[in-house]
Amino acid sequence: MTIQRMDNVSIVVDDLEAATAFFLELGMELEGEATVEGRSVDRMVGLDDVRADIAMVRTPDGHGRLELTKFHSPTAVGAQPNAPVNTLGIRRIMFAVDDIDDILARLRAHGAELVGEVAQYEDSYRLCYVRGPEGILVALAEQIG
């Protein structure tokens, strides 16, 4: 038997409201919000006394989801802030966009910063990396050819 699909990617954040606003500005849609806690949650994640708020956002095509999670207990542990793209582990999420310049302008209003510059890859794509709230790294790809 094989997997059916990738359901979602979880990103732990400290400011759930800011992270949610950032991804909604990017064009994702809020699917739902909830508080999770209790013995079954504790057993599943291997922590005690978990209480967390989550916001589930999805891509407009309905195929991709992010679960943004704010842990109230136990308190989230820190990672290296603004880790470079060659750091081990999950480093970035890439989204296909129609107009990279428009998206950049809108995300900057939410504190996003361009990591390098917008670059063209052959005659196929314009690409860039953007650092959003809490150092979340997002790549944007605009197909041009």
Rank of each mutant, 00 (worst) to 15 (best):
V36R: 05
V50Y: 00
S40K: 13
V50K: 03
E31M: 14
D53I: 00
E25C: 09
V36T: 00
D48S: 10
E29R: 15
V13D: 00
E33R: 15
L26M: 07
V50L: 06
V13W: 03
R39W: 01
R39E: 05
E29N: 14
V41D: 02
V45C: 06
A52R: 11
R51I: 02
D53K: 08
L16Q: 10
L47C: 05
A55Q: 09
M44K: 11
E29I: 13
A18P: 03
M28C: 11
V41K: 07
L47E: 11
D48W: 04
V50I: 02
M28T: 00
M28E: 07
G46T: 04
E25W: 03
A55F: 05
D49E: 14
D15N: 15
R43Y: 02
G46Q: 07
D53S: 09
V36L: 08
E17C: 07
V50D: 00
L47I: 02
V41Q: 03
R43S: 03
D42H: 05
V36W: 06
D15V: 02
D49R: 12
G38E: 00
E17G: 08
M28W: 14
D49Y: 08
A19Y: 11
T35S: 13
V36A: 06
L26V: 04
L30T: 04
A34Q: 14
V45R: 12
F23W: 13
D53T: 03
D14G: 10
D53E: 15
L47S: 05
L26S: 04
L47P: 07
A21M: 10
L26W: 04
D49Q: 12
E29K: 13
D48Q: 11
A18G: 08
V50M: 03
F22I: 01
L24K: 14
V36Q: 08
T35F: 10
M44D: 05
G32N: 14
V50S: 01
I54V: 11
F22H: 09
M44G: 01
A18W: 09
S40A: 14
M28G: 05
R39L: 03
L24E: 14
T20W: 11
G27Q: 07
L16K: 10
F22R: 10
G32Q: 11
S40F: 11
E37G: 01
E25T: 08
A34G: 10
T35H: 08
R39D: 04
L47V: 01
V13M: 03
R43V: 00
D15F: 10
S40H: 12
V50C: 02
I54R: 05
G32K: 12
V13A: 03
L24Y: 13
G38N: 01
E29C: 11
V41G: 02
L24R: 12
A55Y: 07
V45T: 05
L47A: 09
V13Q: 03
F23T: 04
D42R: 06
L30K: 15
T20C: 12
E17D: 13
A34S: 14
D49L: 03
D42T: 01
E25R: 14
A55S: 14
G27Y: 10
E31S: 13
M28V: 04
A52F: 08
M28S: 08
D42N: 14
I54K: 05
S40V: 02
E31R: 13
R39G: 00
A55G: 03
F23S: 04
D53R: 14
E17N: 11
L26Q: 08
E29W: 09
V41A: 06
